[in-house]
Nucleic acid binder design. Structure first.
Lengths: 160, 160
DNA sequence: TAGGTTTTTGCAATTTTTTTGCAGAAATCC
DNA sequence: GGATTTCTGCAAAAAAATTGCAAAAACCTA
């Protein structure tokens, strides 16, 4: 489990920083990182991570991360989210506001990761996010203001 | 060109209303609609539409649309789209508002489908949408209000 | 609208990539 | 220390992508 989790992390990292077009390719990247596994296992990992195979601008295929999400089945109340230790999100570059919207710029490909962290934290100040490649849009709750949003985000983006 | 365009439309429609997991499957759906083509052509179509193969809630593979409407304005207006009977959109989880924005949360991977339906319906109350993986943002027309938006959406999301 | 051009598609494999069933290993749980 | 669950390699099957060409369709344009 230890191995698998760090491998999944590695996969996320690789996919978020490189243009990977096939599992073979990803496999060899993982090997560079010291992970030894078969393509079959990788396929299962990608499935679990809900990675999608997309078509990039140049028409080349590319694996991209979607937002990992724990499913909260309707009705199923369940115990609250695992509440992972405040993950420090990287890739942050800047934040700007306009009306009830905040726009965060990140390093290329870091947007979905950052949005993931924000979503995961479920801040009451933020009612939703959408991520592109290097931009995250946040919709600010009506009962919140910019200062509150910044303060909230500080828990995962210390240097904000 | 005529045939191809309507076929691409058909593909979009099918993918937005059904969970299609393979090209074979899509192929036979298209056949039901009267489109006759080979897997090679379908592969080319999907590539052109930049359809992605994703993983749905049940863990099943699924083709999903990314940007449904860049194809719209092709100088072609003529016969307005078939205006299919109000398709019922699935995957809806919740809707929240802030200012002139509505944020809809969906089950993973359903956002673009839902956005597709909303766009397609061309509600005057909604001037645009953005979809991520499980989130759709709607920009509400200035002359509309939340009640109107909800009422409009009810035509495609009955349980809203 | 006839003739030329461009685009699309089938054919028919071939190649590449992805998925899966199964059994053994490893990890986790009482 | 067994029972149970999770993970993984192996091998093969299934699915998807690509190709080179020729024919068909659609589009121009004079």
């Amino acid at each position: 489990m230890k191995v698998k989790n760090s491998r999944l992390d590695a996969i996320r990292l690789i996919l978020s920083t490189q243009e990977i077009g096939s599992q073979e390719e990803l496999l060899s990247e993982l090997e560079k990182e010291g992970f030894k596994l078969t393509q079959a296992t990788l396929s299962r990992d990608l499935h679990q991570l809900r990675v999608v195979k997309s078509v990039g601008v140049q028409g080349r295929y590319r694996y991209i991360l979607t937002r990992p999400h724990q499913y909260r089945h309707e009705g199923e109340q369940g115990e609250a989210r695992p509440l992972t230790a405040p993950q420090e999100a990287t890739g942050f570059l800047s934040i700007k506001f306009s009306g009830n919207i905040a726009v965060i710029h990140t390093k290329p490909s870091y947007a979905s990761t950052l949005a993931y962290h924000i979503d995961n934290y479920d801040f009451p100040e933020i009612i939703g996010t959408i991520a592109g490649d290097d931009t995250v849009m946040l919709i600010i709750a009506e009962e919140a203001n910019r200062t509150m949003v910044l303060r909230a985000l500080r828990t995962i983006i210390p240097n904000i």
